[in-house]
């Protein structure tokens, strides 16, 4: 009655890991969204300065400065919210597919491609860290601490995607060895 050969145990373990990494992906997608919102809220002035530098100066000729700032800021906010929603939905899609494959065996391949791309983007962003200068002001130090938190969480995300890819591939390999079933 009990199916407990080595392949069965491995399949269950990797499917369980796949499910867990799926949940992790959804949670980290939520974290990305929260991070974006917080960065907009906490760095409002910096953002406004950057927008002013980048904006077409003609807007400041047609309306007063405060109105122009508001228009710029809300345009930026709108774009951020749009990107935030897209980002979360992608994380949710990837996580949900992983959970479904882990729990019910419903296989899809596209989510693994996205997971791989996410992983690649995190790795590339880490390569860029080596170029950053050491902080020589208090403000930069605070910013550096925030960066450290981001890097740690990005590392968690990278691990989650790596685990997801490994678990999906290995569970499929062992499923095939087992003749398609547990």
């Amino acid at each position: 009655m009990e199916n407990n050969n080595e392949n069965d145990l491995k399949i269950r373990r990797y499917k369980n890991q796949l499910m867990m990494s799926g949940f992790g992906c959804i949670l980290l997608g939520g974290w990305s969204a929260i991070r974006m919102i917080l960065s907009v809220y906490l760095e409002k002035d910096k953002i406004l300065d950057a927008l002013r530098n980048a904006a077409d100066w003609s807007i400041y000729e047609s309306v007063d400065a405060k109105t122009a700032d508001t228009v710029l800021f809300f345009t930026y906010l709108g774009m951020t919210v749009f990107i935030l929603i897209i980002s979360f939905l992608i994380h949710f899609y990837v996580g949900r597919c992983a959970v479904r494959e882990g729990r019910d065996g419903r296989k899809r391949n596209f989510y693994l491609v996205i997971a791989g791309l996410f992983l690649l983007s995190i790795v590339i962003s880490y390569i860029g860290i080596g170029d950053k200068n050491i902080a020589d002001s208090a403000e930069e130090a605070i910013s550096k601490n925030a960066d450290v938190v981001t890097y740690v969480l990005d590392a968690s995300m990278a691990f989650t995607f790596l685990d997801m890819l490994f678990s999906a591939v290995l569970s499929r390999i062992y499923l095939k060895k087992n003749g398609g079933g547990e």
């Binding site: 009655m1 009990e2 407990n4 069965d8 145990l9 269950r12 373990r13 369980n16």
Partner: peptide, 14 residues
């Protein structure tokens, strides 16, 4: 019934 007890390391229990 058969299920996976948490302590049984992915082994089915009947």
């Amino acid at each position: 019934y058969k299920y996976l007890p948490a302590w049984n390391e992915y082994r089915e229990m009947y």
